[in-house]
């Protein structure tokens, strides 16, 4: 996997990237040719530190037409960390019941984008967010938005596993308990309306889905922090599934997994797309190609460069940079 080896690139070249998005760098330049066959002249093409070529993005590259409803629609989203402009004017429609892959080099803002969708960026003090994100037509950045309800509907699996220092069982049933869907407290046991059985079922189903059941079924009461990194990651996936969200955001869910577990997770994601809307960040191109219906490519500087059917992106991208990135020339 060449894109993994080349991941040594460092600082995003902000200055150039900013230059590239300047509106008066006009779409009339020769570099904006769409056909990959008609490559621009090498003389007009500059190369960034990361090995990216310089080109101007076009609005139609991120225009993705699809049938059916859109679950999430993002308009002109800008994120700043202090003075750093981490996401630049991203607009994107995410269709319902499908898998959307987000790819791009490290530090280009994929996690940032994902965190905007369930407003986890609110937790970061330095972060400032402009623009709007609509879930089923309702703006989640509305002043009256109910964050708890939002996060219940939009679940998230973090880039690095973060299980609670509780038993495996309690980790899984944490969400439903907090939502009041499962009640196994002392009082409910006393008055005989404990959901112990429902809990057991939920725990088993979620763990099976996350391909973890076989490994932990005998030790559900052990502390989750005693699991291996990959097991913890699957636990976090299971924990998210147990809350039964409508949208599932996954930030590199398979980064710490062996090939077998990875393929199980990939199968799971494909299955999930029957009912849920899945947005998944990955550094693995093959994975994105295998599992996703549409792919969005972010490039250094925090811009969304191209967004389209996965096939189109991988076989015939409009952007030269995207093609370079996918073929492993940088990133």
């Amino acid at each position: 996997m060449s894109e993994h080896q080349t991941e040594t690139e460092t600082e995003p070249d902000r200055e150039r990237a900013a230059e590239a998005t300047e509106p008066d760098a006009a779409p009339s330049t020769a570099t904006a040719t769409t056909e990959s066959a008609s490559r621009p002249e090498p003389s007009t093409e500059r190369t960034t530190v990361a090995g990216e070529t310089d080109e101007t993005t076009r609005p139609e590259w991120v225009q993705y037409d699809f049938d059916g409803e859109s679950k999430l629609s993002v308009h002109d989203l800008d994120v700043y960390y202090g003075d750093e402009h981490a996401l630049k004017g991203v607009s994107m429609e995410i269709p319902e019941e499908s898998v959307t892959a987000l790819i791009g080099p490290s530090g280009c803002g994929k996690s940032t984008y994902l965190r905007c969708l369930n407003r986890m960026n609110d937790r970061i003090k330095a972060a400032r967010i402009d623009g709007s994100v609509e879930l089923d037509g309702q703006n989640v950045y509305d002043d009256n938005a109910n964050l708890v309800e939002l996060r219940k509907r939009v679940g998230m699996v973090f880039q690095s596993p973060n299980p609670f220092p509780k038993s495996i069982r309690d980790n899984i049933s944490y969400g439903p308990r907090k939502h009041g869907d499962i009640n196994t407290g002392l009082l409910s046991r006393l008055v005989g309306r404990s959901d112990k059985e429902a809990e057991e079922k939920l725990v088993e189903r979620s763990l099976r889905d996350a391909a973890l059941w076989d490994e932990v079924s005998g030790r559900l009461d052990d502390n989750a922090l005693g699991l291996s990194g990959g097991q913890q990651q699957r636990l976090c996936i299971a924990r998210c599934l147990a809350t039964d969200p409508e949208v599932i955001l996954m930030d590199e869910p398979a980064s710490a997994l062996d090939p077998i577990a990875t393929s199980k997770i990939e199968d799971l994601i494909t299955d999930l797309a029957e009912e849920y809307t899945v947005v998944v960040v990955t550094h693995n191109m093959q994975q994105a190609a295998r599992i996703s219906d549409q792919t969005a490519v972010f490039l250094t500087g925090g811009e969304l460069v191209e967004y389209d059917d996965t096939e189109k992106i991988f076989e015939n991208p409009e952007s030269q940079r995207v093609e370079d990135y996918i073929s492993g020339k940088f990133g």
Binding site: R123, N162, K166
Partner: peptide, 27 residues
Amino acid sequence: VPESMKSGSLALGSTDWQTMKSVTLPT
């Protein structure tokens, strides 16, 4: 208490108070 743990709880749709009671304080 690591921020990632609190975020994990909030991202599951629990309230701040629930996070404090069930994750932050026990940890």
